[in-house]
Design a protein around this nucleic acid. Sequence first.
DNA 1: CTGAAAGCGCTTACAG
DNA 2: CTGAAAGCGCTTACAG
Lengths: 348, 348
Amino acid sequence: MSVPPAPPRRSRSHHKPSLADVAAAAGVSAITASRVANGKANVDERTRDRVLAAMRELGYRPNVAARALATGRFRSIGVVTYSLGSHGSAATVDAIHEAAAAQGCSVTLARASSASAEEVEQAMDRLAHLGVDGTVVLAERHLAGGLLPTLPTGVPHVFVDSGMPSDLPVVDSDQRDGARLATQHLLDLGHRAVHHLRGPAVSAAGAAREESWQQTMTEAGMVPPASLRGDWTSRSGMELATDVAALARAGELTAVFAGNDQMALGLIHGLHERGIRVPEDVSVVGFDDLPDAAAYLPALTTIRQRFDEIGVTAVEHLLRLIEEPDVEPLRTLVPVELVVRASTVPPG
Amino acid sequence: MSVPPAPPRRSRSHHKPSLADVAAAAGVSAITASRVANGKANVDERTRDRVLAAMRELGYRPNVAARALATGRFRSIGVVTYSLGSHGSAATVDAIHEAAAAQGCSVTLARASSASAEEVEQAMDRLAHLGVDGTVVLAERHLAGGLLPTLPTGVPHVFVDSGMPSDLPVVDSDQRDGARLATQHLLDLGHRAVHHLRGPAVSAAGAAREESWQQTMTEAGMVPPASLRGDWTSRSGMELATDVAALARAGELTAVFAGNDQMALGLIHGLHERGIRVPEDVSVVGFDDLPDAAAYLPALTTIRQRFDEIGVTAVEHLLRLIEEPDVEPLRTLVPVELVVRASTVPPG
DNA sequence: CTGAAAGCGCTTACAG
DNA sequence: CTGAAAGCGCTTACAG
């Protein structure tokens, strides 16, 4: 008497279980299983339990591709970024990611490997292929501006940290207020010769900080001197120390508002090498409040940016735009804060 | 005489054009259009040009969800990370992203908001739902170890920067060699009392560096003193300065190998506050070579990690595992390098 | 070199 | 509260 071959046990096979497998195991239709998978209310409690048990038993995972294809929504947002190298962009991406996850959205990265408009454009193009419901773009003005005409249509965008035209949704730190705070702090300390070490020409944030520094000086009755131009790196700060040292020795400079913490750090290093002490001879204020700013020598007085809030706000805006494409685009300015430490004192 | 209404021009509608639209516009079948979209060779050149032109004209973008559903491949890799806060993880993610993009893969982030094993596990679970072909996990040993039993099956994983069991694919800096290099550098300078400021207990990298420091000391005929324990932050380095200063004053310490640059920075700050000079009184070596390490005061001697190469290698391994699931898992040690700057000198 | 047909796994109205 | 049927947009053998 021959033993009949065991029937193939489909639902136990090594193939990833589908909703249909779950449904079969639970003795319901795929559509009911789908309802359970999506947490819909209109399912009998006992049915739900059976389906849930089947899912657990089979190790069911929904197939996002199928879901996306059926719904037309990817539940994913894209982030275009030049690089994660700067603390600001890394922290912002971190916050974006957290906020997106809280909304059940995943985050897909698209990186523009160089700072050229084409690169950013290509990155966005890739994203458009990648299946996202919207994107947040971390980029400087010239980049974002250059790619405006070619933005992939169909999905909404939110811009962070850039000086985009006012009819576009933008989230940014209150750059102008930060620069005002920094400059006024130095002025309040009694400095009259407050110089500015600005960021690269292409940076909208750099431009805003410089303008606000100028304005603050002017309103205080001072003539703002020519600003020095760095490129955000500590190396550029070190190099600029030559000029700053000369000005300081000539008595034309007692304080510097650096466009960011890294340049401030480099500047302090360079001044030290030339025998000029911070803060005794020159006071320095930065911008960003990097995680280690309090550990610099001297501990750095700076403007704190709320990268976390920028990220959260950007996601909030983007999600609203995804839901209601016709809603008015918002511009949000995230407040900054002056953090006084040891690098600023009254002029000697 | 009434004008007949214009026929609806489907292919020009605001709806996203599908491959079928492209095919219709080009006068070919969808399958031929698909071949062109995927760059297959077996298409007549003139046919290809027609299809390409139609794609351009319609602004066609492939629907990744549909493609993934049909092929079973997402062309996307997941990255599980605790946070992008540290330069190391941000730089690694950056490199992963670049390498993945070069292979036509997108990168999806999954963030474990706390350093608990459950969090990392949940993050991986989310990724499994998110549709990735594999994941690279940036996590400390205890985390990765704790979640081993529950790793989502079906997709391969590569671990970075963690002390996983040897049968798992791991990519990591050569931590032991780095610690040896740092310690030996101090020894070669003539220091005998080389202390170690180690990372948190849970860190596999921290443990490896400590062990290698101990071994190097022992092999040089020295008895390694008790190490001090920080948590990677510059703040913890500042706090540990109290103990280090006491040891230095007692003549029991002339050099410190700090587990990372941030702790080194904080330590130097704390020592300075207590009137102990680096490098005149105490030499300090870090680990990482952060972008600003050369701008610290003094410029920091440290061990350079090649985060870019770690990321690239991790992607390489993962992609191979995706292609051939049965391939032997590899462990790769990425070389590190000693960078000598101003924070180390012979003992006074 | 080109195409007709089936199917990937899910959800969405529409019924009942 | 539950289900049958169609369809999301693409690709994959299989023919020719």
